[in-house]
Structure formats: structure tokens, C-alpha cells
Computed example of a mutant assay.
Amino acid sequence: MSISKGDKVTWNTPQGTTEGVAKEKRTKEFSFDGQKFKASDDEPYWIVESTKTGAQAAHKESSLGTP
């Protein structure tokens, strides 16, 4: 699956499935919200923003779906 900036995406949380928007793709190691992530070209991460709360989080591209 290929995700582009601005795409609507879903991901799983302890409360259930959350919907949001893909904001920024990361392909190199980075820190976000006090955590380190080991992104790469083979396993990119996306900064996503929740439609419901506006909160942002980092998720592996492979863990994101489309609504």
C-alpha cells in the first residue's frame, strides 16, 4: 500500500480504530514526542493527525490502513 501526504488513514489504538490524516513521511531515524524511531526507506514512518482529537503520533506505514 502506498500512502501520500494528506491521505486519510486508520490505525489501531487500545480504544479501537482511529482515523486521521497522513502529515509527514519519515525515512531516517528521528525523535518524536520524546521517543526515538528507526525509520528507513524499507520501513517508513508517518506522522499522523487524529481527526477526532487533533493529536499527532508516529506510526509505521505498515501499521496504517485506509478507511
Rank of each mutant, 00 (worst) to 15 (best):
M1S: 07
M1F: 14
M1Q: 14
S2T: 02
S2W: 07
S2I: 04
S2P: 08
I3C: 03
I3N: 06
S4R: 06
S4C: 10
K5D: 13
G6Q: 14
G6H: 08
G6Y: 02
G6W: 10
D7C: 05
D7M: 05
K8A: 14
K8N: 12
V9D: 12
V9Y: 02
V9W: 07
V9S: 09
T10Y: 06
T10I: 00
T10Q: 08
T10P: 08
W11Y: 06
N12D: 10
T13W: 02
T13V: 05
T13Y: 02
T13F: 02
T13S: 07
P14W: 03
P14C: 11
P14N: 13
P14L: 11
P14F: 02
Q15K: 14
Q15E: 13
G16D: 15
T17M: 14
T17I: 14
T18P: 03
T18C: 09
E19K: 10
E19A: 09
E19S: 13
G20I: 04
G20E: 04
V21H: 00
V21Q: 07
V21F: 09
A22H: 00
A22D: 15
K23I: 15
K23Q: 12
K23S: 15
E24N: 09
E24R: 06
E24S: 11
K25W: 07
K25S: 13
K25Y: 04
R26H: 04
R26F: 04
T27E: 09
T27V: 13
T27Q: 07
T27M: 09
K28Y: 07
K28T: 11
K28E: 13
E29G: 12
E29S: 15
F30V: 05
F30Y: 12
S31E: 15
S31C: 14
F32T: 02
F32D: 01
F32P: 05
F32Q: 06
D33Y: 13
G34T: 10
G34F: 05
Q35F: 14
Q35G: 10
K36G: 03
K36I: 09
K36V: 08
K36A: 07
F37T: 01
K38E: 14
K38M: 15
K38G: 13
K38A: 14
K38T: 15
A39V: 03
A39D: 11
A39L: 03
A39F: 06
A39K: 08
S40V: 15
S40L: 15
D41F: 02
D41C: 06
D42V: 05
D42H: 04
D42C: 02
E43G: 03
P44K: 02
W46N: 10
W46L: 08
I47H: 12
V48I: 00
E49R: 13
S50Q: 08
S50Y: 07
T51F: 03
T51D: 09
K52A: 01
K52C: 03
K52N: 00
T53P: 08
T53C: 03
T53G: 01
T53V: 04
G54C: 11
G54H: 13
A55H: 15
A55S: 13
Q56A: 15
A57Y: 12
A57M: 06
A57E: 01
A57N: 12
A57Q: 11
A57W: 05
H59F: 00
H59L: 08
H59W: 02
H59C: 08
K60I: 06
K60M: 05
K60E: 11
E61Q: 00
S62G: 01
S62M: 00
S63A: 06
L64M: 01
L64F: 06
G65P: 06
G65A: 09
T66D: 03
P67E: 13
P67K: 00
P67Y: 05
